[in-house]
Design a protein around this nucleic acid. Structure first.
Length: 284
DNA sequence: ATAGGCGCCTGCTGGC
DNA sequence: TGCCAGCAGGCGCCTA
């Protein structure tokens, strides 16, 4: 579920709760997550102190005082929270870090188990991992020349391009649809055929939408909660996502839903120009 | 090399 | 009421 705004919210919540705290012990459940957890990692991490909590795309990175790193991906249903140890354990909790004297725990819960928790020996191993992932720039740091060059060289539709983490890191299904609406671009438009002005509209729309979503602590549709357990509120501001058949808030046309790049895709057929034919651009 | 499809999991909803 | 298909915020592997 979680895309950049949700992951950023988790990171901001966790930072004051984790930095400076020490790992007393780690318990791992019987169910495998997406990436393997080695048995001896718990021993290697014991006694280490958290120095920083960061984010890269949809990945959460916990820095430790001896150079080791914990890297968490929330997948579709992951929840990473700090909770008092007495708080009853929810089902689907797969990974528990006991902190300091044991009063608090860092817990990873993930219903569908598409998420993962990994450990890296040092900064070198961590950067090698991110290198192989080929993550694109953070959405707020996308430069105009890079954006132009990247869009020009692919014949995929805009929806597929936005979902590609190598192009921009952190955009997922919700924010791809919302950004395309904000830019007034149809999701089936072919990336390399965009005019310069359209490229710019999209680049800016992504930033505007994600920034606003972070302000609202992300979107909680069903499972998502932040690092302190609070839900997000951006779902109240969705213009297209999940609004199939309901009137567009701008023009009242019913929002449509199609399948694109394997994902359900929502758009306003009126506000988001359909096909890039020169004819449809001519003003009457 | 690139683009699309499927599988991985569990849980919920809506139609019959 | 019960069953089953379809759907869900992600990603990685396979194939053409």
């Amino acid at each position: 579920m979680p895309e950049l705004p949700e992951v950023e919210t988790v990171v901001r919540d966790l930072r004051p709760l984790l930095v400076g705290r020490r790992i007393a012990s780690i318990a791992v459940g019987p169910h495998a997550l997406r990436r393997p957890w080695s048995k001896n990692w718990a021993r290697m991490l014991r006694g280490r102190q958290v120095t920083a909590v960061a984010r890269r795309g949809k990945w959460i990175v916990v820095h430790l005082d001896d150079g080791q790193h914990l890297v968490v991906h929330l997948g579709m249903t992951g929840q990473l929270t700090v909770a008092p140890s007495q708080l009853p354990m929810n089902n689907h909790t797969h990974w528990i870090v006991v902190l300091d004297q044991g009063y608090d725990q860092l817990r990873f819960r993930d219903i569908r188990r598409f998420g993962s928790v990994t450990r890296f020996r040092d900064t070198m191993a961590l950067s090698k991992f991110f290198e192989s992932a080929q993550l694109g720039p953070e959405p707020f740091e996308v430069e105009k020349p890079y954006w132009q060059k990247t869009l020009r060289r692919t014949e995929r539709c805009l929806k597929a391009v936005l979902l590609d983490q190598r192009v921009v890191a952190g955009v997922g299904n919700i924010y791809a649809d919302e950004s395309l609406f904000q830019a007034r671009l149809h999701p089936t438009l072919i990336a390399c055929r965009l005019a310069n002005a359209e490229q710019e509209r999209l680049r800016k729309a992504i930033g505007v939408v994600l920034q606003r979503a972070i302000e609202r602590r992300g979107s909680s549709i069903r499972d998502y909660i932040g690092g302190s357990g609070l839900k997000g509120k951006y779902q109240e501001e969705f213009r297209v996502y999940g609004r199939t058949g309901r009137p567009c808030l701008r023009c009242r046309s019913p929002i449509e839903r199609i399948r694109l790049a394997g994902r359900s895709t929502h758009f306003c057929p009126q506000c988001q120009f359909p096909v890039p034919s020169s004819k449809s651009r001519v003003r009457s």
